[in-house]
Write a protein that binds this DNA or RNA. Structure first.
Length: 424
RNA sequence: GGAGAGCUGUCCGAGUGGUCGAAGGAGCACGAUUGGAAAUCGUGUGUGCGGUCAACGCCGUACCGAGGGUUCGAAUCCCUCGCUCUCCGCCA
């Protein structure tokens, strides 16, 4: 959510910056009227309340002296009715205004490239060498099915499409990766390990920005106002919701493994084969709450922590700076890390690292105090995948495949695989 | 699932219709005292919103789990919901 005072002051400038996102901004123009109406109503009702408080005191005094206060009471009854009417109107206006504010995306940072489509994303750096095979390489879904380590068909029977069973060394590989990533971030990168709830309430989904705009993307629990988490970002960022932290506590660095549930509404027909786009997938997430002045440096560090995973796995990747059109609703700046996928003959997103500045913190009420008596300020929140585990498995299978249809185990994972060096 | 108890400021805790943002205590900050410290004493100590100000601030309003209601007036009465705890049932 944007700061209303800031928006009031710099409306034209903000609108121009938001326009770069390429979204429809007609709603935005309602802000001025709603905001003004709201403040008028507040002034009116508070004036009446001040009067009511004043006269009520007098009534109280009169009653103590056993004097008659009927006239005042009659008058205040009318004032009370008037207040009730105004407050109802005010509530409506505030609801409308809040919905509007919650539906305005974040302002892109000045370093975010301006663009109109994903083609305008900018490559920041590239790492590793793209493998060249002297045999015909196979996509991971074929290799994995032949190796009997993934079973898409039976998952479709047991649940439905876009679900999968991991089996044998496939299941082991997934678990090895989770442990490897968590150990790296907890032991080497200084994050505190968290295992969060996999369902959250509406306030949490609103806090991180999934709601109110994207409810159709989430799985809702029937009979409860709970949602299956689309990412550990939601429970972990909301961990400190509506709290005021001390400056010394910052930065807060959390790493969390969780399953993620996404309906992938609107992506029918895309990536229908393999592990790339599932309704349920595992991810190791990095989340940081930091002081505002640190957040852009931290974004670089956090992105580096995610890249480190790929470097240790020796998987070639590139880092893309997302342009204004491809930024997502909540981010001010976002890097996507894309891993080389031989079956696509291109790089595919495996991590997304974002700085939300105070956008989520304002929604979620996450603040800190610089000094004992200081004014609370909003923290900046960041997160990044470190990494999406299913996509890592598919990248390993494809990049480490051998002519005989077996898959080599990346060196760093061998201890996590019980010493196995090949999946066969 | 059933029965009961509770939810008040950073914390403990009083308050069952009227100068209650809220007694008292602890903590914390500042000051006094001291050679220094402890003890003691004094002062201060929340947040949101609106207005005003160059700014410190000031004024108003709201907040005693959340949301409604009754009333001239609600922390206090009523309703709904959430959470915590205890007992029973069930259960990995």
């Amino acid at each position: 959510m944007l700061d209303m005072k800031m928006l009031r002051k710099n409306f034209a400038e903000v609108k121009e910056k938001l326009a770069h996102r390429g979204e429809d901004l007609t709603d935005l123009d309602r802000f001025g009227d709603l905001d003004e109406k709201r403040r008028d109503l507040i002034a009116e009702t508070e004036q009446l309340k001040a009067k009511r408080n004043e006269v009520s005191k007098q009534i109280s005094l009169l009653k103590k002296e056993k004097k008659n206060a009927d006239d005042m009471i009659t008058e205040m009854r009318e004032v009370g009715d008037r207040i009730k009417t105004i407050d109802q109107e005010l509530r409506q206006v505030e609801e409308e205004l809040e919905l509007l504010m919650l539906s305005i995306p974040n302002i892109p940072h000045e370093s975010t490239p301006i663009g109109e489509t994903e083609d305008d994303n900018v490559e920041v750096r590239k790492w590793g060498e793209v493998p060249s095979f002297d045999f015909e390489e196979k996509p991971h879904w074929d290799l994995a099915t032949e190796l009997d380590i993934l079973d898409f068909e039976r998952a479709a029977k047991v649940t439905g499409s876009r679900f999968v069973f991991y089996k044998g060394l496939g299941a082991r590989l997934e678990r090895a990766l989770i442990n490897f990533m968590m150990d790296l971030h907890a032991d080497e990168h200084g994050y505190q390990e968290i295992l969060p709830p996999h369902m959250v309430n509406r306030a949490s989904m609103t806090g991180t920005g999934q709601l109110p705009k994207f409810e159709e993307d989430a799985f809702k629990v029937d009979g409860w106002d709970y949602f299956l988490i689309p990412t550990a970002e939601v429970p972990v960022t909301n961990y400190h919701r509506e709290e005021i932290l001390k400056a010394e506590e910052l930065p807060k660095k959390f790493t969390a493994y969780s399953s993620n549930f996404r309906s992938e509404a609107g992506s029918a027909g895309r990536d229908t084969r393999g592990l790339i786009r599932q309704h349920q997938f595992n991810k190791v997430e990095l989340v940081q709450l930091v002081k505002p002045e640190d957040s852009y440096q931290v974004l670089e560090e956090l992105t580096g922590h995610a890249e480190k995973v790929l470097q240790l796995l020796k998987l070639p990747y590139r880092v893309m700076s997302m342009c204004t059109a491809d930024l997502g609703f909540t981010a001010a700046k976002k890097y996507d890390i894309e891993v080389w996928m031989p079956s696509n003959d291109t790089y595919r997103e495996i991590s997304s690292c974002s700085n939300f500045e105070d956008f989520q913190a304002r929604r979620a009420g996450i603040r800190f105090r610089r000094e004992e008596k200081g004014k609370p300020e909003f923290v900046h929140t960041l997160n990044g995948s470190g990494l999406a585990v299913g996509r890592t498995v598919s990248a390993i299978i494809e990049n480490y495949q051998q002519e005989d249809g077996t898959v080599k185990v990346p060196e760093v994972l061998v201890p996590y695989m019980g010493g196995k060096t090949v999946i066969q």
